[in-house]
């Protein structure tokens, strides 16, 4: 596959989403290029990498940043990298819920944690990844390969 730079209008909408939903300021992503794989998956990378991925056939790229194809969904890996700067859209979980989340289970949110939609699951200052909050239930959005049993937290 080759990656194409996203249109400025889309980039603007994406950054606006990060700001509105999570309070992550635009300067958190300074120096990064956003590239589209043609299937609505956006990757964040440095400029050199973006130019290479645009001109060459690549097998994969990093960092998967978000899905932006009607649905607007941040990736868990993006949250782990940039989620520390979020000020809202966060569900703080306790130790047991954090373990459940990392192992791949859905979890329950505290009441009025935040409005429905994609949320940052945070434990003890660590942004663990993404969840989908609906009526107090949080659907686990961690990719299967990233799920693991964690004993020591």
């Amino acid at each position: 596959m080759k990656l194409a730079p996203i249109r400025p209008k889309e980039a603007e909408a994406m950054l606006e989403f990060m700001e509105n939903r999570f309070g992550i300021p635009r300067n958190a992503f300074e120096g990064l290029e956003f590239m589209d794989n043609g299937k609505g998956k956006i990757f964040a990378m440095n400029e050199r990498n973006a130019v290479f991925c645009n001109r060459n056939n690549i097998m994969s790229a990093s960092l998967p940043f978000m899905r932006f194809d009607g649905a607007t969904k941040p990736t868990s890996m993006m949250i782990q990298m940039f989620g520390a700067r979020a000020t809202k859209g966060i569900v703080h979980v306790d130790r047991n819920k954090a373990k459940d989340y990392m192992a791949g289970f859905d979890i329950m949110a505290k009441e009025n944690a935040c409005s429905d939609g994609y949320v940052i699951i945070k434990y003890n200052g660590f942004p663990l990844g993404c969840g989908l909050l609906r009526n107090g239930d949080i659907k686990n959005q961690l990719p299967k390969a990233k799920r693991m049993p964690v004993e020591l937290i």
Partner: peptide
């Protein structure tokens, strides 16, 4: 074996790597 490279790049937050085969 490309999948495992991808997995590790994502997990470790690498943004200067392109994977080719």
């Amino acid at each position: 074996r490309l999948k495992i490279i991808k997995h590790n790049l994502e997990k470790l937050g690498c943004m200067n790597v392109a994977v080719v085969n």
